[in-house]
Design a protein around this nucleic acid. Structure first.
Lengths: 153, 153
DNA sequence: TCGAATTAGTTTCATATGTAACTATTATGT
DNA sequence: ACATAATAGTTACATATGAAACTAATTCGA
């Protein structure tokens, strides 16, 4: 049995394709709220998590949005400084502090959400409804597989 | 007509999902060649582009792998330092220099490619062949759409 | 109950990345 | 031919990110 020569066609290589697509989309979205609102991607994600699930501790935020605790800590510091979120130390466990959007944060959140959804909508116009559902399901399975490979080997 | 309240469900938000999936895959792949071979993701991508299409100028590399010229320049500097690629200034236009893998670079490339393809294969096990084709086609269309939105508005 | 281990979160350091300014070379228009 | 613009690539600066060390508080176990 002769060994097949393997060639790597970068443009057809799944991890590469995912990376390029995600980066392009991420950059576009970034333009949507970075310049107008002065937020980084990680800060916006923290706000989005709090907008939906507050109150959350920093750890819980990290679990929700798949972000490590250092990144969360830095994003929270920046958002606190600008008065966009509020922190309240847990009385029964003073290591923990629950976070929520401030009034200002809620205003900004309410202005960004429609922009983000509109962008998603325009992106999804590339697919018909069946294809959207299909795409979402496939990404979900790839994600689960990638996590299994990382964790279990 | 009452305005519908819009909610952003981050975990169902397409840009977010793409970002998290791409990052997870990218991290896994990174473990595959970063520690063993001491390459960054950008360096590996430059090697992959040269392994397939050499000789290329730095600009051409950037176009192939969707990477800006500064990133290419830095990756090239690192790869030159380690003797993994070779540079030859174009005689008819001395601004340009064509790049190719060195003998050492080809050896390393030949060792990494099977690892990368094996990882892709294990990832793709989450999908059956029809689904793979479908997924690839859908990502292609989303990419085209994202680029159109960025460029054209 | 007291020391070790765990957990939440922050700080530090080294590295990576993006933007803009810069150098060197070639192309263009008059 | 010569000033201006464009192109290839590098450097510099500011900011972002990841890994590991660290602080503070709590839990666990002998």
């Amino acid at each position: 049995m002769s060994a097949a020569l393997q060639a790597l066609e970068l443009e057809n290589f799944l991890p590469y394709r995912l990376s390029v697509l995600a980066q392009l989309v991420s950059e576009s979205l970034h333009d949507l709220y970075a310049a107008p609102f002065g937020l980084t991607v990680t800060q916006w994600r923290v706000m989005a998590a709090l907008g939906r699930f507050a109150p959350l501790t920093a750890s819980e935020v990290g679990q929700r949005i798949v972000m490590d605790k250092v990144a969360v800590s830095r994003a929270v510091a920046g958002l606190m400084e600008r008065g966009l979120i509020e922190r309240a130390t847990d009385r029964s466990d003073r290591r923990r502090a629950s976070l929520r959007l401030s009034a200002r944060g809620r205003v900004m959140h309410a202005r960004i959400v429609p922009l983000a959804l509109a962008y998603q909508e325009r992106l999804y116009e590339a697919l018909d409804p069946d294809e959207r559902r299909s795409f979402d399901a496939l990404t979900e399975r790839l994600f689960a597989r990638a996590r299994a490979l990382r964790d279990g080997g």
